[in-house]
Design a binder for these strands. Sequence first.
RNA 1: CUACGGACUUA
Length: 315
Amino acid sequence: IVTYNAMVTGYAQRGFMDEALTLIKNMHQGGIKPDVITWTAALSGFARLGKQKEALRLFQEMEQSGVKSNSASWNAIIVGLTQHGHTMLAYDMFQEMQMAGTKPNVASWTALISGFAQQGHVATGQELLKQMKMSGMVPDVATWTALLAGHAREGCLEESLELFLQMQREGVRPDVIAWTALIGGYAKKGYHKDASSFLMEMKQRGVAPNVGTWNALIVGHASHGSVAEAMQLFTEMQQEGLKPNQYTWNAMILVLSHHGQFEEACIVFNIMQREGIKPDVVSWNTLIAGYCHRGRDKEAFEHFEQMKYEGLSPD
RNA sequence: CUACGGACUUA
């Protein structure tokens, strides 16, 4: 069962759902009964792909086979809904989960709060946090960060900072992700000085910045700031021993495009490939949108064609 | 037991 679960999880996480389902069938034939982990791994795969019908079907199949769902199974469904914009349906599921006798855990609350926060409904998220506390649950660093990030994305820096402080008053230590959410808010508004003081502070407090943290700093230089400073950060992160990832390269393309440096942006396409990272739809969209903003429709179209030629489908 | 939640890129 352990081996099977590992394999089902592997396939499901990669979106190979046919393979995952075949494995479950094999388990049955081999006389091994899939457990709640097997089922949850599989239905979570469907949920992430936005195939809610199939996810729910597996959920029912699980219960019919006599395996009781737990909060993780419900959470997988809820996350699938929130990540595809169905926040209200996720909320309904959350209620249904309780009616079915499963108590939401911290992850359930966090998933729901994050869903609303990502849709720009931060106030609802705040309200849910209050309810969560009233129900006796204790928010952890992920819960706080979901809300904090919501405020940061809205550009409400005071609110995001206040949550950052509040979580600490309530005994929760910010981790690298919480710091990154905070820093990202400041960076995006062009408050680069504040962003880098926070970077220093997090280091002093023993939290090591990761690639995501640097990405947040770099991308701030798209709307406000300069290519030179972005390049400087890009170099610095590598001196710290961190390797640029897809987000980093795309951020660099964005910064260059925003500043009209399209030739350089195209060079970045080549370099990233040489470094083993393929430009994705986001990379191309960024470049094409950059051309469009400057009225360079011809080049936008040429790159649109080239993207298709490279085997990527426009979204 | 590689089951479920939070940050950073385009639109």
